[in-house]
Design a protein around this nucleic acid. Structure first.
Length: 114
DNA sequence: GATATGACGTCAT
DNA sequence: CATGACGCCATAT
C-alpha cells in the first residue's frame, strides 16, 4: 500500500454508513459522502453501491429526494421505501420528513417550516 | 500515469 | 421547473 493511512477502502466506509440508515429514513448520495468524510464524493457512493449488496441501497436517493434509478429498479426502490413508511411528494421522497442526516444539520431549505 | 465510468451536486440559462 | 454544462472523487482497465 502506498498510503497506509487508508486502512479501509472508501467503499467499506460508505457501505458501513449506508447500512446505518434507519428503516423509514433516506439519505442523499451527497449526504452519505459527507458522512463518510468525503464531501463532494457522491459519485463514490454510487460506485460503492454498485459493488455492494445486502445493504439498504433503496434508502439512498438524490439530493432532492429524487429517485435517480431508471426503469424497474427505480420502481422497486420506491416501493421498498413506501413499504417502510416513507412518504412521497409527487415523484420525490419527502426529505423534510425522512432525510437522515447522521446527526448533522440538514441543509436549510426554503419553505422548510417545521 | 492516462482514460473511462458511475444510481450525483450545483450553478447558469 | 427543465435542461445543459461543469465539477467532484475513487475505482477499473
Amino acid at each position: 500500500m502506498q498510503s497506509p493511512r487508508r486502512r479501509t477502502t472508501v467503499h467499506q466506509r460508505i457501505l458501513a454508513i449506508v447500512g446505518r440508515i434507519p428503516r423509514g429514513k433516506v439519505c442523499s448520495y451527497g449526504g452519505v459522502a459527507r458522512a463518510a468524510r468525503l464531501p463532494g464524493a457522491a459519485r463514490q457512493v454510487v460506485w460503492a453501491l454498485h459493488s455492494s449488496r445486502g445493504l439498504p441501497w433503496h434508502r439512498v436517493v438524490g439530493a432532492k429526494g429524487e429517485i435517480k434509478l431508471k426503469g424497474e429498479s427505480g420502481l422497486e426502490q420506491r416501493l421498498r421505501l413506501e413499504a417502510e413508511g416513507v412518504s412521497f411528494l409527487g415523484s420525490r421522497v419527502n426529505m423534510e420528513r425522512h432525510e437522515h442526516t447522521f446527526g448533522r444539520r440538514p441543509a436549510a431549505r426554503k419553505g422548510a417550516r417545521r
